[in-house]
C-alpha cells in the first residue's frame, strides 16, 4: 500500500532515510500476523491514546506505525510490516528502489531470512 505523510513526523529506522521520497511510503498490505489485508487506516480519535495515524488489520487488530517503518504498536503481530524502498526517477515516476525490508506475509520457520534483491 502507498501512503503519503508529513516528512517532519517520519522516524524511519537507520538506513531507510531515502526510502520515502516526499513522504511517500510503501508497505506490504499483508498482515505479518495471520495474513489478512491491513485494510484500515486509523486517524486518531483520542490523541492521548492514539497520538498519530496507524495501519490496522481488521481480523485481530494488529496495529502498525507507518512513521517508524511499520513497527507493531498493538495487537498480536510478531513482526513489523515489510517496507518497500521507493525512489523518484529522472522522469518523475515513482519506482521501487529494491526489495522489501523483510519477507512478506505471516510468519513461518524461515521468514526472518533476508529477502534477496534480485
Amino acid at each position: 500500500m502507498l501512503i503519503r505523510v508529513d516528512t517532519t513526523k517520519l522516524k524511519l529506522p537507520e538506513g531507510r532515510a531515502s526510502w520515502a521520497p516526499e513522504g511517500i511510503l510503501a508497505y506490504s498490505k499483508i498482515c505479518t500476523h495471520a495474513g489478512c489485508a491491513v485494510a484500515l487506516y486509523r486517524k486518531p480519535t483520542f490523541p492521548v491514546l492514539e497520538p498519530q495515524d496507524a495501519l490496522v488489520c481488521p481480523c485481530h487488530y494488529s496495529t502498525f506505525d507507518p512513521f517508524t517503518g511499520g513497527t507493531v504498536t498493538y495487537g498480536p503481530a510478531g513482526r513489523p510490516l515489510p517496507q518497500l524502498p521507493l525512489e523518484i526517477d529522472a522522469d518523475g515516476n515513482l519506482r521501487a528502489a529494491g526489495n522489501f525490508s523483510q519477507r512478506v506475509g505471516p510468519s513461518w520457520w524461515n521468514v526472518r531470512s533476508r529477502p534477496t534483491n534480485d
Partner: peptide
C-alpha cells in the same frame, strides 16, 4: 487467509 497464516505458523 487466517487459515493459511495459522497453517504456516
Amino acid at each position: 487467509a487466517i487459515g493459511y497464516g495459522v497453517g504456516l505458523s
